[in-house]
Amino acid sequence: MGRSGPETGSPSVPPVRRPAVDWRIRFAVLSLIWGFSFLLIKVGTQAYVPLQVTLGRMVFGTAVLIAVLAVRRERMPRGARTWGHLAVAAFFLNGLPFSLFAYAELTIPSTLAGICNATTPLWGMVLSIVALSEDRPTRRRVVGLGIGFAGVLTVLGAWQGFSGQDPAGTVMALVASLSYAVGWVYVRRTLAGTGNSHLAMSGSQLLLGTAQLALVTPLFTTFPSAFPVLPLLSVLALGAFGTGFAFLLQYGLVAEVGPTTASMVTYFIPVVATAAGVLVLGEAITWNTPVGALVVLVGAALTQGRRRFAGRGAIMAKGGPARSPAGHRTGMAGVQADR
């Protein structure tokens, strides 16, 4: 559900009653929830294998959205074609990236995973140039792409053998971010203008992603012999808050302040993820990590430029960061700035 994120044209969002809580507070809460997702993944994998963490995340996230759909009495999408496209979107925006980030964090710090997540807009720009004929490159965006990937190399300490980071784990985190971008491009091309609400599309997407994981997980894992409280609570929070409740927050922000402002959450996620990893998990960082992360964010911002946003569509439902128009943790298919 990306990025989701976390990343277009102004989506057609139905009028909503202005919430009592100021949008800036909800924006800050969303940044914290998505930023802490990487810490929760790390804690969850201390007791459960990555696929189990992902499945649990999907189950709890889906439960939240389905419950909201039931309360609002909104119908699920109709048509085999729509459900088929949603199944593909669920794979690229939920099942695959969620699983890859979980596997990556077996060998890399949660701080690095959070920073890799911020590369989604960079991947998204590359893919949008190839797959979206109306999305032409500009000099500013090409420069941003180069700056962004230079920032990735800085984070990894490429001049000194990648600073001891595990290559396999790092590649999995980067591929997870690429998957968000692929899913975002796919959603824009296949699910825009379906006439269904963002909530219904997102809930359906998560439901399909949960079904996919429910079929795959038993084939590659065995049932847990124990359920330690802290990892279990981490998985529950990752799903219910980081995937379900976070989407509802983003949906409300987009309706109130628009997709451009809501998408700015993308640039706070790696900051929160880094702070959480260092302060809570005691992960060590060197100077190149925050400096490289800043360079990545500058490059990502430049790649976005001033672009028109696409119309209505599905929600990215990444559960993680919404992603930018160019590319998560899993936003809306009409909202992205993700993450």
Rank of each mutant, 00 (worst) to 15 (best):
V21A: 15
D22G: 14
W23M: 14
R24C: 13
R24F: 13
R24P: 14
I25A: 07
I25E: 01
I25S: 09
I25T: 10
R26T: 07
F27T: 04
F27G: 01
F27Y: 10
F27C: 05
A28Q: 07
A28N: 03
A28E: 02
A28C: 02
A28W: 03
A28P: 01
V29H: 09
V29S: 11
L30R: 09
L30P: 01
S31E: 08
L32I: 13
L32N: 09
L32V: 13
L32Y: 07
L32D: 07
I33L: 00
I33V: 06
W34Y: 09
W34A: 03
W34N: 00
W34G: 00
G35L: 09
G35P: 09
F36D: 01
F36E: 04
F36Q: 05
F36P: 02
F36Y: 10
S37N: 07
S37Q: 01
S37M: 00
F38Y: 10
F38W: 04
F38R: 01
F38D: 00
L39V: 13
L39K: 06
L40E: 02
L40P: 06
L40C: 06
L40R: 02
L40F: 11
I41G: 01
I41R: 02
K42Q: 02
K42A: 05
K42F: 02
V43C: 08
V43E: 03
V43N: 03
G44Q: 07
G44F: 02
G44L: 09
T45D: 04
Q46M: 04
Q46L: 02
A47W: 08
A47S: 10
Y48P: 13
Y48W: 15
Y48L: 13
Y48C: 10
Y48I: 13
V49N: 15
V49Q: 14
V49M: 11
P50A: 07
P50N: 01
L51C: 12
L51M: 11
L51A: 11
L51D: 11
Q52W: 15
Q52P: 12
V53A: 05
V53P: 02
V53W: 01
